[in-house]
Amino acid sequence: MARARDGDRDAFGALVDMYQDAVRRVTRAVLHDADEADDAAQDAFLSVLVKLAQYDPSRPFRPWLMRIAANMAIDRKRRRQVRRGQPLAPEAHSHEPSPQLHAERTALREKLEAAMTHLPERYRVALVLYDVEGYSHPEIAEILGIPVGTVRSAVFHARRTLRPLLEGWREAEGT
C-alpha cells in the first residue's frame, strides 16, 4: 500500500490483481453491461490511486475500495443510458456444454438476469457483497452508506427473489 502510494506501479498493479475480482463483480452487479462495468472498475482503481494520499491506513482498505467502486458504478449508471437487457456474461466458457444443458443454462441465465434487473441496485450490490465477497451487514452498511437494517432487508429480499429460480441449480453448472 505504501509503495503504491509512493508511485510504485508494480505495487499498484498488485493491488489491482488482488482486488479486481471483487471490484468488477460489484460494478457488474450495478451496471449489467460487462464493458461498462469494467470501465467503472477501472475508474474506481484510478480514483483509489489519486486518493491514496488521503487514505487512512488505520482503517481497512477493502471496504474503502469497495465503497469507491460501488459509488463509481452507481454514478456511472445515473449518468449514462444503460442498455437494459444486455447479456451479463457473453464470454465463452472453457468447455462446450451439451445442447440440452446449454439451453437450460441460457434459460436460467435469462431468468436470473431478469430477476437481478428488477432488483434495486443497492439490493444487488448488497447481495454480492454479502454472499460472494463475504462482507458483514455492518461493513456493507458502511460501504453503501445506508443503515444496517436496510442492508439486512436488502439481502433478505434479494435472496428471496433469486432462490426460487435456483431450485434446480447445481454448483457444477458454473464451472
Binding site: 454472499d131 460472494v132 435472496r159 458454473g174
Partner: peptide, 18 residues
Amino acid sequence: VPADPKVKAALEWLLPVT
C-alpha cells in the same frame, strides 16, 4: 444469517470476472 453458497455460486456464474 449465514452466507448462502447456492446464491454465491449462482452470482459468480452470472457475474464472471474474465
